[in-house]
């Protein structure tokens, strides 16, 4: 079954499955315990190394299982974990399992431009105002009309000593907001990179003991970024291209890493994201098989009642017109052939002397004849006329 088309062939919205977009991706940690070997951490010894790769390891079990930062003894105590997802995804959740006491403050950010700029998705803190200058998240969710970065309670320590950071985009979106119909929500869930800033360790520190050398290290595993490869409703899966980049397997006449534009010949109407109601497939231009390229014209699209705006370019086989649907000057439509036939347009072949011009009627093929001349190509004298010696008046009345 084709998830992007009905059984009858009609296009329908299709989306890739929910995956852990961070799985196997390289995590950039601003701090990882390395040298000198201390406290069972030695980056040169696999049995005692705690690299950031352990956060997103694909398959298998390792020992150790947790990434660990360097010992942090003085401010700043920030440690940043950045995960480039490789392409745009539509986020559903982000989670991170801590192997030691979870931090008291964490900021979660996303980038939509491969790390050039960052915006917050949410905060987690026991001191939202102090740490992030925000009020705690209301229990009812965001008050505004759109999603917003709220400050949630800090990850709670669990009996085993660890803790779990869990963020769901649903928690920061007003109820009733629908991804299909809300461009704001579509923008909110779109991300190319995720960044987690571990801002404040669990160890209580206040101004008085900020310099106190109470060593602390962040330690975590299982960084998950739940989401769908973003294909705008025009692909059911993402694949690796020959260059090793993750790209959508675009359908519906679309192309691009996110199926974000119409293919070159599929520009009869503007690109749109597919919805459950309407697939908004890009339509091929109607050129009767005589052109390989076309362009979109908004004015024509509006005039057609938003049905068709494609204009064929470089009509071949002596055809012309927006859809290559009539013959170019000097040619006429052969009624015995289909409009898509390569020989649908025949040369007028007007007689060089008998015809008054080279352009014939595009439907009948009749050339314009001089006085007294007849025939489709004006190659004979009409009854009652005879050929003269003058090329200007080739037929004269019979005496």
């Amino acid at each position: 079954a084709d998830p992007c088309h009905e059984e009858g062939g009609a296009p329908r919205v299709c989306v890739p499955g929910l995956v852990n977009a961070a799985l196997g991706r390289e995590v950039l940690a601003s701090s990882t315990c390395r040298q000198p070997p201390a406290q069972a951490c030695d980056s040169s010894d696999p049995r005692r190394a705690h690299p950031a790769t352990l956060l997103t390891l694909a398959g298998g079990t390792t020992s150790p299982v947790c990434w660990r930062s360097d010992w942090l003894t003085r401010a700043p105590l920030n440690v940043t974990l950045t995960v480039p997802l490789g392409k745009t995804f539509e986020l559903v959740f982000v989670s991170l399992r801590f192997c030691s006491a979870p931090p008291s403050s964490v900021a979660l950010l996303k980038s939509q431009d491969h790390g050039r700029s960052w915006v917050p998705l949410g905060f987690f803190s026991s001191r939202c105002g102090l740490d992030y200058g925000r009020p705690p998240a209301p229990a009812s969710g965001p008050a505004g009309p759109g999603p917003e970065a709220l400050c949630f309670p800090e990850p709670q320590p669990q009996p085993n000593g660890g803790g779990l950071l869990a963020f769901s985009v649903q928690d920061s979106s007003p109820p009733g907001l629908d991804l299909d119909s809300s461009p704001v929500l579509q923008d909110w869930v779109t991300a190319t990179d995720i960044r987690i800033v571990l801002t404040r360790p669990a160890v209580p520190r206040d101004a008085g003991d900020a310099e106190a050398a109470v060593p602390y290290a962040y330690s975590a595993t299982e960084l998950q970024v739940g989401g769908r490869c973003k294909c705008n409703g025009h692909a059911a899966r993402c694949l690796l291209d020959p260059q090793g980049h993750l790209v959508c397997d675009c359908r519906h006449g679309t192309e691009g890493p996110d199926c974000g534009r119409c293919k070159p010949f599929y520009c009869d109407r503007p690109w749109q994201r597919a919805t459950a109601r309407e697939a908004h497939a890009c339509l091929a231009c109607s050129c009767n098989g005589h052109a390989r390229r076309c362009r979109f014209n908004m004015e024509l699209y509006r005039l057609s009642g938003r049905r068709s705006g494609g204009v064929c370019l470089n009509c071949r086989h002596n055809t012309a017109g927006r859809h290559c649907h009539y013959c170019r000057e000097g040619f006429y439509r052969d009624p015995g052939r289909a409009p898509s036939d390569r020989r649908a347009c025949r040369a007028c072949d007007c007689h060089p002397v008998g015809a008054a011009g080279k352009t014939c009627n595009q439907t009948t093929g009749q050339c314009p004849c001089k006085d007294g001349v007849t025939g489709l190509t004006c190659n004979r004298c009409a009854p009652g006329f005879q050929q003269s010696r003058s090329p200007v008046a080739p037929c004269v009345k019979t005496p």
Partner: peptide, 23 residues
Amino acid sequence: EVMPTLDMALFDWTDYEDLKPEA
């Protein structure tokens, strides 16, 4: 009545050299 096609050889191009079609 079907008239014969125009005979190009009968035309006198003396005064109309510029109109004469290429052979």
